[in-house]
């Protein structure tokens, strides 16, 4: 597995991030650093606050307290830019925050229907982010669409079909193609294999692992499925009732869990 560049400055940092809806509901006092090329898994049961944390990290929900800092590679000179291009996500105007999500980041939803335009063809879905970045050549858009359909193991001949004619697994592949086509600096994934049956999951995971490695993606991955975490993540954070109870290298956490809750979590699933 390709090694993340730990010497380089952090790509994303959470500093004392809290977002609570009620006691134990949400996430509380989260600190971590994500380095370029690293895949960080956030695991925990449903209701542990991992999805809230993902929303806060990806700019969709303002935290009650704390800071999310992102180091942009795109030339700045805009509002909210700190030293060495570090951006305080929630000090940015909404315009810049949305521009980040559109230009530099990618978000893979658990339900592909949330991330796709169901009414337009697969090709238009893949091309949208390219068009948003200014690509104005139909032939090239189409070529990129076909190329990416191939990469996510979809039949390029179906480029003009609407996503609603695709199966759930195919829709998820399409969503991944649509997100990765612009080679985002940072990808957020929310249970990317959730809701799919087991055989479909396995193939998708395999494909995802290959893509992450080939493209050297930096990923924050939220999942309740430890098998998914083991396959994709370099490092893990285990969450329970809004707090991080344990974090470290994936193998370390899964093979030698220290915290009682993590032990319970690990023992309750069959490890491969």
């Amino acid at each position: 597995m390709k090694c993340p560049e730990l010497q380089r400055p952090a790509l994303l940092e959470a500093r004392g991030v809290s977002r609570l809806y009620g006691p134990g509901k949400g996430c509380e006092a989260i600190d971590f650093t994500l380095h370029r090329g690293e895949v960080l898994g956030i695991v925990g049961e449903s209701g542990s606050g991992k999805s809230t944390l993902l929303r806060v990290l990806s700019g969709l929900e303002r935290p009650d307290t704390g800071q999310v800092a992102y180091r942009s590679t795109v030339a700045q000179g805009h509002d909210g830019a700190g030293h060495e291009g570090e951006l305080d996500l929630y000090a940015l105007g909404e315009a810049r925050r949305r521009a980040l999500l559109r230009m530099e980041w990618g978000l893979v939803h658990q339900n592909p229907r949330d991330g796709l335009r169901l009414g337009v063809s697969a090709g238009a879905n893949i091309g949208e982010r390219l068009m948003a970045l200014g690509e104005r050549h139909y032939g090239q858009l189409r070529a990129a669409g076909q190329d990416w359909m191939g990469r996510v193991e979809l039949d390029p001949k179906r480029i003009d079909d609407a996503p609603k004619t695709f199966s759930g697994g195919m829709q998820q592949r399409l969503q991944i193609a649509r997100t990765l086509v612009t080679r985002p600096n940072l990808v957020f994934m929310d249970e990317p294999t959730g809701g799919l049956d087991v055989s479909v999951q396995a193939r998708l995971l395999d494909m995802l692992r290959t893509l992450v490695r080939e493209l050297g993606l930096s990923v924050i991955l939220v999942t309740h499925d430890l098998a998914v975490a083991r396959l994709l993540a370099h490092r893990l954070m285990v969450m329970r009732r809004g707090q991080v109870v344990e974090s470290g290298l994936t193998d370390q956490i899964l093979d030698d869990p220290q915290h009682a809750y993590t032990q319970l979590l690990v023992s309750s699933v069959l490890t491969p």
Partner: peptide
């Protein structure tokens, strides 16, 4: 209004793309 403010116009070309594809 937000889309105009942020010049988020990619989606206009999605429609044109779709026309040509179809």
């Amino acid at each position: 209004r937000l889309m105009h403010a942020l010049e988020e116009y990619g989606v206009m070309h999605v429609k044109l793309y779709e026309d040509i594809a179809r």
